[in-house]
Amino acid sequence: MAEATARPQLKSVWTAAEPLLDVRDLKVWFPIRAGLAQRTVAHVRAVDGVSLQVGQGETVGLVGESGCGKSTLGRAVLKLVEPTAGEVLYKGTSLHSRGGGAMRGLRREIAMIFQDPYASLDPRQTVGEIISEPLDIHHLYEGRTARRDRLAELLDLVGLNPRMAQRYPHEFSGGQRQRVGIARALAGEPSFIVCDEPVSALDVSIQAQIINLLEKLQQRLNLTYLFIAHDLSVVKHISNRIAVMYLGRIVEIAGSNELHRRPKHPYTASLLSAIPIPDPKIERHRQRIILTGDVPSPVNPPSGCRFRTRCFNAQDKCAQEDPPLDTVQLGDHQAACFFPVE
C-alpha cells in the first residue's frame, strides 16, 4: 500500500529552474477518411507546430477562437490525443516514451479541468463518488474513514459543503459543478493543471468566483496552470504570460501586461480591440479592428502566414513566407509577423 501511495519517480535531473512543461514543435493532425476503404484523404491540422514552455508555479494563458487548436493542445499535454509529430516533456521526460505504469503515475501529476461543467460529470454518480474517483484509481487512502476525510477536505477546499457529497450533479448550479470538477482535479494532488476554458460556460458573476478560487488554490497548493480560454479579459487577470493561437499555431506570446499594452501581431491587436471598456465615455470612442472573413479551414491553411487572408497589414511577402514566432523578439515577447503593429 505504501508503495502505491508513493509519488511516481520522475527523472531526477529535472530542476525547478527548467520549464515544468516543455512542448516541442507539437503537431496533432486528425485524418479525414472517406470512401469504402476509409482511405485518408486529408488532415485537419488542429495543432501544427507549437512550442511552448511553462515554468513551475507559472500560469500561461492560451487564447484563440473556436477551432484554433487550443483545446487539442491541452489534451495532447495529458496524452488524451496522440501527437502526429513533436513531443511533450514534463519535468524533462517525454510523455511519449512512457509506458502504461509511468503514464498512470503521470495522470496524478497532471490534471485537467473541463469547460462544460454539465457534460464533464457522470450523471449517474454522486458528487462524492466523482471526486473520490482519483483516490480509488491511485489507491490514495487506507480505510473508509481516510477516504471520507479526504473527500470532505477536497469539498471544503473548493468551497462546497462536505455534506453535499451524497448529491447528484444535476442538483447543482453550473458554478458549483465546476467546483466539483476542480475538486476532482485536485484529488490526485497534481502539480500541473490544464484548465480547458473552465469559466466559458458560466455566468460572468460566477466566472470571477471560479477564477479567484483557482488563484487561491494555486497559491495554497503551488500549482502550475495552462489556462485555455477564448476570452482575453478572462486570461489577463490570472496569467503571467499569454500565448495567442491562430489556426494551429502560436502567433504571439508575451507577459500578460506587455501583451495587453503593446500587442505586436495584428490578430492580437484585433482581439484586444474587441474587449469592451466598462466606461461609457471611453467605450463610445473605442476604436475597433473588425476582421473580415472567416477563419480558413485547418484542412487547407493559407500559404505563408496563416493570418494573411484576414490581416489588415498583409503584403506580398506574407503569402510567400511563413513567419517564425521569433520574427518579432523583444525580451520574452515574441510574435510571428513580418509587419507588426506599432
Binding site: 495529458l78 488524451l80 495522470r107 490534471a111 473541463f114 457522470d122 450523471p123 454518480q125 474517483e133 482519483p134
Partner: peptide
C-alpha cells in the same frame, strides 16, 4: 461525452471506464 474523457484523464483503466461509467449510462 466529456466525463468519459475526464475520467480517462485521471488514469482510469478501460475496465473501470466501461463498468463504472459506460454501463450505468
Amino acid at each position: 461525452r466529456d466525463f468519459m474523457l475526464a475520467t480517462r484523464s485521471l488514469g482510469a483503466s478501460n475496465w473501470r471506464l466501461m463498468s463504472r461509467h459506460l454501463l450505468p449510462n
